[in-house]
């Protein structure tokens, strides 16, 4: 086993960590860095609960070797609210619309939605659904999640 030292930007801050060559990003985040907001639901890239943003794009951190984060920027759910605790408009909207039930898919939903709104601030419903199609939710039936993304997009006007 040859461990590797990697440096990357995590939620806006530069971090340097030593990782096993075969560690997956989700485990580095959760176990080594203590960021447990990123969830593990299937470990095969199907549920989307482990979604993080890599250079602003959503990826499944359960499928990504941690080494791939080197030199790049990673955003997790913990990185969305401002330092003073002010919520991101999506976080506000998810609470306002009742879009979170058990909450297990919520970080993945919010991060995929963030990537969408960053690229397309006022998406149509079809675009919202497409952007969130890689995260499964078993509780909500998705309606209030779509509503929350719409609300957040409106609050950004």
């Amino acid at each position: 086993m040859s461990n590797l030292e990697i440096t990357f930007v995590l939620n806006g801050e530069r971090v340097k960590v030593v990782t096993a060559p075969d560690a997956l990003l989700v485990d580095l985040l959760r176990d080594t860095l203590g960021l447990t907001g990123t969830k593990v639901g299937c470990r095969e890239g199907e549920c989307g609960a482990c979604t993080v943003l890599l250079d602003g794009k959503p990826v499944n951190s359960c499928l990504l070797p941690a080494v791939k984060a080197a030199g790049r920027s990673v955003t997790t759910i913990e990185g969305l609210a401002a330092a003073d605790g002010t919520l991101h408009p999506l976080q506000e909207a998810f609470t306002e619309e009742g879009a979170a039930q058990c909450g297990f898919c919520t970080p993945g939903m919010i991060l995929n939605a963030k990537a969408l709104l960053d690229a397309n601030p006022h998406p149509q419903e079809g675009e919202i659904r497409q952007a969130l199609s890689g995260v499964l939710c078993r509780c909500t039936g998705y309606g209030k999640i779509v509503a929350a993304v719409k609300t957040a997009s409106q609050s950004r006007k």
Partner: peptide
């Protein structure tokens, strides 16, 4: 293919 997250990588 897969999902948006899969397609990104």
């Amino acid at each position: 293919v897969g999902s948006p997250q899969i397609r990104n990588v």
